[in-house]
């Protein structure tokens, strides 16, 4: 077997328990949603439960990677001894997590769609709404959840790599402090940078209008391809730095 497939299979086994646990938690939560909806006599309550669960999937990769990386830390010497480059080791984790996210997202999206169209019947509430609007909006939301979740997962991996380097050279407390500081400081720095004129000149281009009905209008009417390109580059940069740190600086 190719080493990459062997590593993917190992990551699948490592993450499988957590992914099944997350699915069970999802169904328990939805069960609570059914009960709350029945007690309140309001079907829309269940739809709200579904929508919340759907949106919370942006944090799925953060949870998955936390569990996977913490478990890996216990056997770090085995992981570092593998012949694969660090970026492939990280990609094996990210891909497995992303697969698990896609599966869970598909289930909650289907349940949300069924609850929105059959339990609540949004078409009755708004006669202008079409299936095309519902499906297009759903796909748009799901794609963004998949991308944002992956982005957060890569960001977390980056912080983990820094934590491993710092905690080895300065101690675990310093590693935690620096990790937490970066967790708050980097998003702040990014928001400052994204507010500059230079950022707008470089990355706010390629406007695409989203032609949905007013009801299906989610949070924005248009997007910029340049903005996606910027985040793609940033994700690549974070993954590159994390891989480099693991390859060259992380020790056991």
């Amino acid at each position: 077997m190719n080493p990459w497939w062997g590593q993917l299979a190992k990551e699948y086994r490592l993450g499988r328990g957590g992914a099944i646990g997350a699915l069970i938690a999802l169904f328990l939560y939805l069960g609570i949603g059914v009960y709350a909806s029945w007690r309140m006599g309001n079907p829309e309550t269940f739809l709200a439960f579904c929508a919340f669960a759907l949106m919370m999937h942006v944090l799925y990769m953060a949870g998955y990677m936390c569990v996977s990386l913490i478990r890996e830390q216990r056997t770090l010497h085995l992981w570092l001894q593998t012949p694969l480059p660090a970026y492939k080791l990280l990609l094996a984790k990210l891909l497995n997590g992303w697969g698990a996210l896609a599966f869970s997202l598909f289930i909650i999206s289907a349940i949300t769609l069924l609850s929105g169209t059959m339990v609540v019947n949004l078409f009755e509430l708004d006669p202008e709404l079409t299936w095309r609007d519902v499906i297009s909006t759903g796909i748009l939301i799901d794609i963004h959840i998949l991308l944002i979740a992956l982005y957060i997962g890569i960001g977390l991996t980056f912080l983990w790599a820094i934590y491993l380097v710092v905690s080895k050279s300065l101690g675990k407390v310093s590693g935690n402090v620096i990790g937490i500081c970066l967790f708050f400081f980097l998003p702040w720095l990014m928001s400052k940078w994204e507010g500059t004129g230079l950022f707008h000149a470089l990355f706010i281009w390629g406007k695409v209008d989203l032609n949905f009905s007013d009801v299906a209008y989610v949070a924005f009417r248009h997007v910029y391809i340049g903005y996606y390109f910027y985040h793609f580059l940033l994700a690549l940069l974070l993954l590159f730095i994390a891989s480099w740190l693991i390859e060259r600086k992380v020790e056991v």
Binding site: M1, K10, R13, R74, H77, L78
Partner: peptide, 25 residues
């Protein structure tokens, strides 16, 4: 390299551990 640490991929069986190493190297 055989580490002094008592750390393994505990989710594997003995046979699966051997297969994993065979896939890697």
């Amino acid at each position: 390299y055989l580490s002094e640490l008592d750390a393994y991929y505990t989710f594997y069986t003995v046979g699966e551990t051997v297969s994993y190493y065979a896939s890697l190297y």
